[in-house]
Amino acid sequence: MTNDTRSVISLRVNDATHRLCLDNRRTLLDALREDTGHTGPKKGCDHGQCGACTVLLDGRRVLSCLTLAVTAEGAEVTTVEGLAGDGELRPIQQAFVRLDGFQCGYCTSGQLCSAVGMLAEHAAGWPSAVTADLCPDGPAPALDAAEVRERMSGNLCRCGAYPSIVRAILEEAR
């Protein structure tokens, strides 16, 4: 069997470049966790069903368990470790701490990256399944609790921290 085919790639993670020789089957999630030392992104299902592995790829949220690492060459990957620049927490991170937007914390890095990506999508005018007015020339949809819940539904939290996560995101959006 020839299933040890490997590739050498450069991976940009949180503004640093990593030169890696990777099994072509390695997911971006496993490359981050096992090769570049970024264990902030979590593996909750490995099947794109829970959102715990969410990272930003060129600013857009992706499920790193469904992304092969070799396809991320040339992109800017941002993980939860890269959200706080220079040790200063971003306001949304502060809001998660202050409003208790987590319990066990296992889904948290995915929730945070997803929220950052989601807010950018909203700012760019992207509608969601609960957006009433889909007219492309209309005003950007207001970001209320229902919009946040809909747009964040790919990020499961078994501890049930949803109400305070939504509060923290709405605070950031304001």
Binding site: R33, G37, H38, T39, G40, P41, K42, K43, T79, V80, E81, L83, A84, L89, Q93, F96, V97, R98, D100, F102, G105, Y106, T108, S109, L112
Partner: peptide, 21 residues
């Protein structure tokens, strides 16, 4: 009072079992 490990959990620094090098 916010959790003592709050900062670690929002920065990816909190270590779970499979994170231990």
């Amino acid at each position: 009072r916010p959790r003592v490990e709050g900062r670690a959990k929002v920065t990816g620094g909190a270590r779970y079992s499979a994170d231990e090098p």
